[in-house]
Every structure is written in structure tokens, then in C-alpha cells.
Design a binder for these strands. Structure first.
Lengths: 275, 275
DNA sequence: GGAGCGCTGTATCGTATGTTACGTATTTTG
DNA sequence: CAAAATACGTAACATACGATACAGCGCTCC
């Protein structure tokens, strides 16, 4: 079973003429970066002519050079996606059905935060902490609980936090309360919901700043969003995982809380005394 | 100090016009592969025109698109050389408000699962998959969203799944529907809610099997619970983290789904066709 | 409410890139 | 050793890619 181009080369390098063999060797030596460059660069690095490079990739079974490059890119992308699979089969003792799921989830989180800069989070937190406007939160079929979770916390440390629940017509009526200074936090992962898209578009038209929590394939709402948080959702299960987004949400809650510490603390004390 | 293009983007994304920001977001979401493809593909993925992509890379300080791609390739090559330096986000200098939170959360999950045997999870999953009885879910102030999340998933793969919402008197009235064969999933972390305790006790008296999600200090409801899942909740924040419990919930959802695969798949197909 | 600026997409252009044809060199085989 | 086949590079070609000019539009700021 041959899965990577490197293996394919190792398999056929024996039956190659001298020039193509040099091409193969240089590719293996700097795998796979040389293959992503132009034919001219590749040929120069290998010390052969361009046609030799093309004959080489043709011998590997590719129709043309771009196809060969795409294949290399896909391979690279797959590698980058799952850091766990980088080290061939992690030890994973126990071998139960739990470990893979947990490992994948932990990877998702690391990966999600790797693509998320402190600055970006700080920006969003600052926007959420800005008390001049209102904050609305809404989610999709499975992600609405995340919106609720976030709303429950934010509502404690600042006023004017609203979770949009119920039917679509209900939200729409709330649009009238939304303006430039307000923020709309939307959770939307596959399969993206049309109702949310429609709502986001209308809110965007009213100048509402949208913060979008979505998966790595980006909900179409990204088009209207001021800030986009792309979380990894793939796990070995029938369902997608929202755990990474959940952790991002918690992180944001923490950041906002810290920013509003002074006012927030006072507010919390007041609330406690109201019980 | 900016070393990677991702940082560069994070740094300037705030001062970008809408179109270019969309380009930036799609690049970050699928970093860095999209950037290695052609301008046409990149622009299509981002939903903008080619010139916008070019203006985007120009704003990042590159003379032209190939130069931008070379830079990405160099970065990738360096990454592949030393997997240790894979960190896209530098060790979070100064503030470091994010990393500690994430690290603590990851630790919490590992700890939580360390104290959780596969068998225990399997038992709970089996109980939840047992379709002879009904399943009720409820949570506390901050954890109710977790109950909703779990309910949303379970309700798809099996009938008779109910999330208990609204006021306390509402739940109490549902007690009459509960019996020995039924399961009640409760989420309760500090500060434990009296209302939930009262409810759990009454349900217990009726012979309902209780599955409790709580923190490591154990809600008093543990006294009535058949199964107790104790998750770590401590993070460097003003709030406790429910992330570990969230992941356990997802894991359980996955396990139950697997057990009900045959019936569940049929059910899901039926549901899809109802749309 | 009007003028100015900045952003974005369409259409066009030049060029770098991959591709192919062909002639020469090198090896193989009878 | 001769003749044929294969391999390799040079040079011309076509395509597709990135770059640019320009016009329409929305937005902000007087």
C-alpha cells in the first residue's frame, strides 16, 4: 500500500534513468519543499534540465506538474491537520474507545489556539468589555448552548447582555434594538444554518459588529464578521466536537472579566447581596 | 518581534478593510495551505476578487505574490525541520493571559480522564443507550447549557430525551413521569444549587437513576447518584471551568451514539428526510 | 446634504511557467 | 564494432497566472 509520494518514489527509483534519479534524490533530500517550487528551481537544484523534471513526475503517474504539486500539498495539509498522527501511532495505552477521542480533542484545542493570537483575543475581549453597546449572543442547533454559557457569564459582569432564543421571528424583532455600537456573537458550525446567515446579514447591514465562532471551514457568516474564531472540530465520532470553541469561549469570558475587574467586582458583590 | 506571517496578520488585521480581512481570516483558518495555492483559488476560498488578495499580501509588506509564497514556504520548511518549534504562537510574551488558561484546561482534562475508567464511561453510556426508559437532563446556573448540549445530541439518536428548563416548579411537575427505568443527568458544580439538590432527592426517592456531572469537591447530590463524574474545574480565572465536563459529555455522546449505531443511523436518516 | 476619499470588482495586459518538438549524446545489443 | 534505441538538453510555444488600470460604489466628514 503506497500512500505518500515519498513511498512512491522509493518504490520506483530503481527503475529510473540517471537524470530522473537525481531529481528523485533531491526531492527526497528536501522533501517536500522542492516539489512545491517551480520546475525551473527544481531542475536547477537537481542539476538537470526542466524536461527531465517533467518526465520524472510523469513517470510517477501524474498527468502534469501542477497535479503533482497539488498532491504534495494535500499530503502536507493532512500532516499539519493532525499533529497526533505526526508521530506514528502514539503509544496510547489502554487502547479503549476513550483515548482517541480525548487525544483528538486535546489536539483540536492546541491547534485552535495555535491559530489564534493573543492580540486577536484581546481585541475581541476589549470589544466585549466595551460597555457603551449591547451584547447579543446566538447559536445554531448544537452550538446554542455555547451561546447560553457565554451569555450566562457575561451577563453577570456587565449589563445589556442578551441571549437570543426561541424562534427566528423572535430574533428578527430584536434587530430593531441593534446598532453600530452593539456586538453580536454568533456560533455556527457545520452544517451551517441558513437562518443564522440571514440574521447575520441583516445585523451586519445595521452596522452591528459580529464575532463569529465557527469551524475551520468557516461558516458563510464569516463574510459579515468583524472577528472570526475558527476552531477545530474533527474527532473520531459521528459528531463534530465543539469543545475547542467552548474553551475559547471560556478564555474570552476570563479575559473580559479581567478587563472589567473593577466595575465587575462591584457588580458581582451587588448581585450577591440581592439573593 | 514578529517572526511568522501569522503573527504579522494578527498584528495588522485590525487595520484592514473588510475584504482584506476576509482574506486574512481564511488564511488563518487554513494556515498556511491556502496561501500556497494560486491567487485565483485563494480569492475563491475567501469569497473576494483576485486583486483584493494581492492588495492583502501587499499590505503585509510583500512586493508580490510569489515573494509572499516563498516566505510561507520557508516558514513551513523551518517547521518541518524542527517539530519542536511548531509553535505558531510564540510563548505568549508579557501578558501570557492565554497560555496559562489553556494549559490549565488541558491539564484538567487529562486529570479528569485519569480518574475516569473506560468501564465507568461504558456503564453510563450503556445506561443512557438503554431505550426502555426516558432520559432527563438538567443543570445549574452555569452548567445548564451543558445539559442542553447533551440533550440536543441524545434527542437525535433516541426518543424520550427531555431537557428540563424553566422554573423549579416546572421540573417538579415532571417528576410524576419519572420512574425506576428512567435516567436523570444532572450538572452541578460549585456553588451547588439547593434547588437541584431538592429535585435530585425527590427523583432518587422515585427510583430514578441519577448520573451526576460535578466538580472534584462533589456536589451533595453525589449522595443520591448512581454514577458520579468528577471533573477538574480549577483555572487561573475568576470563574471555574466546565470544559472538562464538556469533553466528558461529548465523549459520552459519542459512546452512546456508537452503541445505538444501527437504530440511530436509521433514525438520523429519517430525521434528515423530514426537513 | 454634498463633496471627497477609500475600498472593491471587472477587464485587460504582460510575463513567467509548464509543456512539447527535435536534435544530439550515450548506452545497449546483435 | 556497428546499429538501434533510449536518454537528455536546447529552444520554441502556449497557457494560465499574477499584475495593473479603471470605474462604480459606499462611506465618512465637512
Amino acid at each position: 500500500m503506497i500512500s505518500s509520494i515519498a513511498e512512491l518514489i522509493a518504490d520506483r527509483i530503481g527503475s529510473m534513468p540517471a537524470g530522473e534519479r537525481r531529481a528523485a534524490q533531491t526531492l527526497i533530500a528536501n522533501y517536500p519543499m522542492i516539489g512545491l517550487k517551480t520546475v525551473a528551481e527544481f531542475s536547477a537544484a537537481a542539476g538537470v534540465s526542466s524536461p527531465t523534471i517533467l518526465r520524472f513526475v510523469a513517470r510517477l503517474g501524474f498527468q502534469n506538474y501542477p497535479e503533482f504539486q497539488s498532491s504534495l500539498q494535500d499530503e502536507l495539509a493532512a500532516q499539519l491537520q493532525s499533529p497526533a498522527t505526526r508521530t506514528l501511532n502514539p503509544p496510547s495505552p489502554g487502547g479503549g474507545t476513550v483515548s482517541p477521542m480525548l487525544e483528538a480533542t486535546l489536539d483540536n484545542m492546541r491547534e485552535t489556539f495555535r491559530h489564534l493570537s493573543d492580540k486577536q483575543l484581546a481585541d475581541i475581549a476589549a470589544r466585549l468589555a466595551d460597555r457603551r453597546g449591547k451584547t447579543f449572543l446566538i447559536g445554531g442547533r448544537f452550538t446554542d448552548p455555547l451561546a447560553r454559557y457565554m451569555a450566562a457569564h457575561l451577563a453577570i459582569i456587565q449589563p445589556d447582555v442578551f441571549h437570543l432564543a426561541g424562534q427566528e421571528s423572535m430574533w428578527r424583532d430584536r434587530l430593531i434594538d441593534m446598532g453600530k455600537r452593539d456586538v453580536l456573537v454568533i456560533f455556527d458550525i457545520r452544517r451551517y444554518q441558513d437562518s443564522l446567515l440571514r440574521f447575520a446579514e441583516k445585523a451586519h447591514q445595521r452596522g452591528v459588529q459580529i464575532v463569529l465562532f465557527t469551524d475551520q471551514w468557516l461558516s458563510p457568516i464569516a463574510r459579515f464578521a468583524r472577528h472570526v474564531i475558527a476552531g477545530r472540530t474533527a474527532v473520531p465520532s459521528a459528531w463534530d466536537s465543539s469543545a475547542a470553541l467552548f474553551v475559547v469561549a471560556e478564555t474570552l469570558i476570563g479575559a473580559v472579566t479581567r478587563q472589567l475587574e473593577a466595575e465587575g467586582a462591584k457588580r458581582i458583590r451587588e448581585m450577591e447581596s440581592l439573593r
